[in-house]
Design a protein around this nucleic acid. Structure first.
Lengths: 228, 228
DNA sequence: CCTGGCTATCTTGTATACACAACGGTGATT
DNA sequence: AATCACCGTTGTGTATACAAGATAGCCAGG
């Protein structure tokens, strides 16, 4: 039942399936608590259960879903505290990236970083949060890469991806875009100047504030829910 | 009334298989470069290919093996530089654990930490590196837990596991055990005292030195090989 | 009416079967 | 003799079939 020649069919289908399912999880199509029925997923994507299972196992080992023996896979209810913990770690990873980047960044990487930064500026001026959001990811990715630590880049990227949905919630917060950009400016300056400790501290604060804002948001929602 | 659990509850076999294969990888039974034939593994463990595949996929998503489409799974040749990168990240994670632990450790956790530390002391006095090695793991685990960040604990534990084989190499280095213990002592003092920055710095150095020692070891081996 | 146990059914976990791509060997051609 | 092409073998990727455990619904008993 393979689809007509639209996919090279050369790579494992489970690989592609994993990305598809991940996309549906982070975009909220499969909200937390959802039970992921293997047969159902198989029918949905027009494949058999085998690739679906492999995809699920892969997602589980990354922590995106939970598989309990004989009880199937579910999208975990990530508690707010859990997310805060993840932001705490993310802040440290980014701080580390910044510290290393300030020491190791190459001239061409400096250019790439500044270019990404200017792109963010354009999005800010255009007041397009969605665009800014995407460019922001590139900006941070540039910093990761400038750390010249491939393993760190992988870890930071993975966690960044995993936090994406929660960060997305903050897009509409008042003035967040402008504030974010100003913080970016200071970070760029510190890295270019080679001030590793400053870059580290700024990045840690930059990410930490996101975690705190997330916590605020959750608290607000809880109050709202309680007040109903 | 019936005996509750004498059999491992028949959780997924792939789970157990994964641990078995992982064990064989980190202990060097399957050295880097080994090609992992699915059928062969299936025969070895007396199961079919399906659980083996699932175990391999899980190991691959953790980075312990590499799976190339249509070309099977292999134990990757982790370059020395790669391992150094991992140690660099590990140092930072441990530093973070120490910083948080110094601020958040509870009295009972203090006792547990000191107990683990004293156990290490006994192993040092008995001059039993293998025992010390195991107790050292518990010691570090105690610090992780004292950070009161569950996600961080998971990440640190996972990376620690993955670095285990490379750390093991350093067991026989001269005086390593005594030096390690002294460093531990300073770390414990800093955490108990609540000096988060000191604890952080000490732990970073403690782990970094392991990475450097690994690099030295590799360099030595390379020279040795080149001299042949 | 509620509770407790039993069974029916559904879903996961494992095994087997099949399809196709990649690697290696052999033979023919230059 | 060397090179290239063709074919067989091997092993991965996917589908299907089968077995076992878990949940839920139902019936019986208190």
């Amino acid at each position: 039942m393979t689809s007509p020649a639209e996919i090279p069919a050369t790579a494992r289908q489970s690989e592609r399936l994993g990305e598809l399912i991940e996309e549906r999880i982070v975009t909220g199509v499969y909200p937390p608590g959802t039970r992921l029925d293997e047969q159902e997923l198989a029918d949905t994507f027009g494949v058999s259960r085998t690739p679906v299972r492999e995809a699920l196992i892969q997602l589980a080992s990354v922590g995106l879903i939970e598989i309990k023996p004989r009880r199937g896979a579910t999208v975990p209810e990530v508690g707010a505290d859990r997310v805060c913990e993840m932001f705490e770690v993310m802040a440290e990873l980014e701080a580390m990236c910044g510290r290393l980047a300030a020491r190791r960044i190459t001239p061409s990487e400096q250019l790439a970083l500044q270019e990404a930064h200017r792109a963010c500026e354009a999005a800010r001026d255009a007041n397009t949060p969605d665009i800014y959001y995407q460019l922001n990811e590139i900006f941070h990715q540039r910093i990761y890469e400038a750390s010249h630590n491939g393993f760190l880049v992988e870890q930071a990227t993975a966690l960044h991806r995993r936090l994406r949905p929660y960060r997305r919630l903050q897009l509409r917060v008042r003035n967040r875009m402008a504030t974010s950009f100003n913080e970016h400016q200071a970070i760029v300056d510190a890295i270019i100047k080679g001030d590793s400790e400053l870059a580290s501290a700024l990045l840690r604060a930059h990410v930490t504030v996101q975690g705190e804002r997330f916590a605020d948001l959750v608290a607000t929602l809880r109050d709202f829910k309680a007040g109903t």
